[in-house]
Design a protein around this nucleic acid. Structure first.
Lengths: 270, 270
DNA sequence: CGCCCTGTTGAGTTTTATCAATATTGGTGG
DNA sequence: CCACCAATATTGATAAAACTCAACAGGGCG
């Protein structure tokens, strides 16, 4: 393996790790994915749009490195961040089933992502049913996270809300090998946090100070340190159920259970 | 057609109408669906759980008549309604891909629903790719609605928020033939509205009064009347894009476009 | 008839937003 | 290397939005 190849491998590592979390893949499936991802890899600077609302849906984009967010705006300019996208996250799995994009996706940091034409993508899924499963499970996971955000915005107060978001991000980063020992890179500004939690930036600032004063977090120089994750989780009323990280393992059990005959295509376009 | 059959047909009508909205189905597909739905139909009283958090995922449930909601609770008892389910909505499409249910579903009114074993369901999807597409598009629609709720809770104030929810419900009901001339059945209590919008019941009460005072709605005796839908939409900053009701038609165009060879299975378990 | 659920009202409090000013930081060009 | 700029973070004061508590009214139903 030469230098270029190993650099490429390390670029893809977090994304592949995410996929393996959802479905345990065979070496040849990993290889097919690696091939596709590196073939269609692209780069983007920070604070730029990958996809804008209303775009037609002819590509499937997968984050390889860096952070991005989904967001939606109201006519009067108010903006809500709907989700954060980390390496291995699909921007738009299956969305080509719908007519148009109903929100936008922007980069937070400089970003690498794969932009795969829908036809190529569909062929890959057709050839590798277990990769298709990755895409499906990822969609369901997205849905589950979105529900948790609904709960977060509807029921938790500012303090719990921000704590919850920090827990989610840390745990998702940890799962793909981008956080360790309570420490992770954290490129969000307080104003990003505000738009994600539906709070004002001033209030986010004060709430972060409260979290710091409680000894729960350190957050400086784009690095988040969580002193005691369990303590943070309990103040946030956080449980990681909704991230469904038993899927990769439980699936083996599950799919051998019903013993369903033959491939059950879930999305067959016609 | 005897009396029992015609009663049954009218029970299924709204759900079938919803499916047709998502994908234009052929008569034999409609028949296969009708057969399955009526074979596994069940009934449930009001204020009862269809599915509880943590349940294993061996069935697919589809609402046939009545209203239900998804909800999630925090340990301390706070509760958030995540979505309202109307006739034709899937409680759990594809969720059997995940290990366990991460929220609960309860009935609001007395309810009819089909409870189809996962194996039977998968067989149906396998035999009828376009029905599989209904399930997929429904999942994406669910996701889109969940995102709009995130925006609603994060950015809109109480007045806009409730107005937005009323718009969504009216339009969804209208699309399946359960609302006409600005009028529809409305079984939600103010406390349901509060749990859906993340507000207190008292504040919901006062906000509804404000909406009434502004001449936008009438809401009595479990009936909602919207005097001027356009006016309500504009105070709610509501646009119906996110409901994607161009899907059924645009799909014809879309799927004939890429001319993808063969069925691209999206979920093939193994 | 009486009870429980739902809706309504008033008063007082808490949470969060707004506005405006000031500090800090990181990056950039001279 | 320093000076300057824009973006970000912080602070204080005040206002608005929403919540809590508590009481009461109405209506349907056993």
């Amino acid at each position: 393996m030469n230098v270029a190849q190993s650099q490429e491998a390390s670029l893809l590592a977090p994304a592949l790790r995410k996929f393996q979390l959802l479905v345990r893949l065979q070496p040849e499936e990993v290889e097919a994915l690696e091939h596709m991802l590196s073939r269609y890899a692209r780069h983007l600077g920070q604070h730029d749009d990958l996809v804008s609302e209303g775009s037609p849906l002819q590509f499937v984009r997968i984050i390889l490195s860096g952070w991005a967010y989904r967001y939606k705006m109201l006519e009067d300019g108010r903006r809500q961040i709907l989700a954060f996208l980390l390496p291995g996250d699909f921007c738009d799995p299956n969305y080509f089933c719908l007519g148009h994009f109903d929100h936008s996706i922007g980069s937070i940091t400089a970003l690498s992502y794969a932009m795969v034409p829908a036809t190529v993508y569909q062929q890959l899924l057709h050839d590798h049913p277990r990769i298709a499963r990755v895409a499906t499970v990822d969609t369901l996971l997205d849905l589950s996270i979105q529900r948790e955000w609904t709960l977060n915005l509807g029921q938790r107060d500012a303090y719990e809300r921000i704590a919850h978001l920090l827990c989610e991000l840390y745990i998702r980063l940890h799962a793909i090998g981008l956080a360790e020992n309570g420490k992770c890179a954290f490129p969000l500004t307080q104003s990003d946090l505000a738009e994600a939690t539906g709070l004002s930036t001033v209030h986010v600032n004060r709430t972060l100070q409260a979290l710091r004063a409680a000894g729960l977090i350190t957050l400086t120089a784009k690095t988040l340190t969580i002193a005691n994750l369990q303590a943070l989780e309990s103040t946030a009323l956080f449980t990681s159920d909704y991230l469904h990280w038993d899927v990769g393992t439980s699936l083996t059990r599950n799919s051998s259970g019903p013993a369903d005959g033959g491939g059950e295509g879930m999305i067959e376009a016609r």
